[in-house]
């Protein structure tokens, strides 16, 4: 009995000490970690649009975030889009409720500062002010619209889908016609050397330039990646002038409508990413069309 007691106390104490240390480190590092992640996302967004430190983005490039919520009111379900609107040069957020068939239900003005809208807690507080119970809401996803001089340049979609081992987090860039501008793997825990190769240029760049029509029916093929295509996909690594402009065009058009080449030894990871990206593009194209329809019919002064 005495033994058991000593063991229990010993284990509890060591767990508590460990928890205390981890908690302390977490509190110290959390803010910086979030900050770094934020910077990373920002950099990725610009990178997907083709901007870097050498090629800085133009000053009039703006990002607008749209947040999608699922709103439930008893038995009926709505989609709640939190969209930025511009009124008299000031950016504000509005919550637009849309029925599942794409019909406008209602809209609410939200009192939230645009710079605070990136915080999930702040958003929830603002929505709670307008949506009274029994209405409940859950966060679904977000879209970032890149705008330049009043025109939409690109959509940036953060997304998550199951991979071989755990979830894969990605950022996908689409042009206004839903052609893929680029894919970036943000977080993944696939097997190093096999599935983890999804974050290599020669895999993720295969998605670049795929049209919406192609993406709707894209598949994974188990064929070896042709050498010239691989060099083309990884051309950032090579010296400039390795490919002439004509050659780039030739290879681009040759493989533009080709399916995705699977990674050797990681077919499941390749398929998961392809399926995930395909679903993201299809669903997004469907949703944004509905949202745009409502925006046009209601004459909402959206900021994007």
């Amino acid at each position: 009995m005495k033994q058991i007691l000593r063991i229990t106390v010993g284990l509890t104490v060591s767990c508590l000490i460990a928890a205390f240390i981890m908690g302390a480190v977490f509190t110290v590092t959390d803010k910086r970690k979030k900050h770094n992640e934020h910077l990373n996302v920002q950099e990725t967004m610009l990178g997907l649009l083709g901007y870097s430190k050498k090629n800085p983005p133009p000053g009039d490039l703006k990002f607008h975030r749209i947040y999608r919520y699922i709103v439930e009111d008893g038995k009926s379900k709505y989609l709640g889009y939190m969209v930025p609107v511009e009124e008299g040069g000031k950016e504000d957020y509005q919550l637009v409720l849309i029925g599942l068939k794409g019909d406008f239900v209602s809209s609410y003005k939200l009192s939230i500062a645009p710079e605070k809208a990136e915080e999930a807690v702040e958003r929830e507080a603002a929505i709670n002010q307008v949506l009274k119970p029994p209405k409940t809401f859950t966060y679904a996803d977000a879209v970032i619209v890149a705008e330049r001089g009043g025109k939409r340049v690109a959509y940036l979609l953060p997304g998550e889908f199951p991979g071989f081992k755990t979830f894969i987090t990605v950022m996908l860039a689409l042009d206004p016609g839903f052609k893929i501008l680029g894919l970036e793997i943000m977080e993944q825990e696939e097997d190093p050397g096999l599935g983890a190769e999804i974050s290599q240029e020669y895999f993720k760049n295969q998605f670049k330039d795929k049209s919406f029509k192609k993406m709707k029916e894209i598949k994974v093929v188990k064929e070896p990646l042709p050498d010239e295509y691989r060099r083309f996909l990884e051309r950032k690594k090579w010296k400039e002038g390795m490919f002439t402009r004509e050659e780039i065009e030739r290879i681009r058009s040759k493989y533009q409508d080709h399916d995705i080449y699977a990674l050797t030894g990681a077919t499941i990871s390749s398929k998961s990413v392809t399926r995930g990206v395909k679903n993201m593009v299809k669903k997004f194209a469907y949703r944004i069309k509905i949202l745009d329809g409502v925006i046009a019919s209601r004459k909402l002064a959206v900021a994007f």
Binding site: G10, L11, S14, A18, V25, T29, R32, K33
Partner: peptide, 25 residues
């Protein structure tokens, strides 16, 4: 009697500390 759990706990703590510090700094 509880040395093995303590070892695991120690390793886990260090892994977490290193992981969080790397991510932050």
């Amino acid at each position: 009697r509880i040395r093995i759990p303590t070892y695991t706990l120690t390793i886990a703590t260090w892994v977490t500390v290193i992981d969080l510090s790397l991510a932050a700094f």
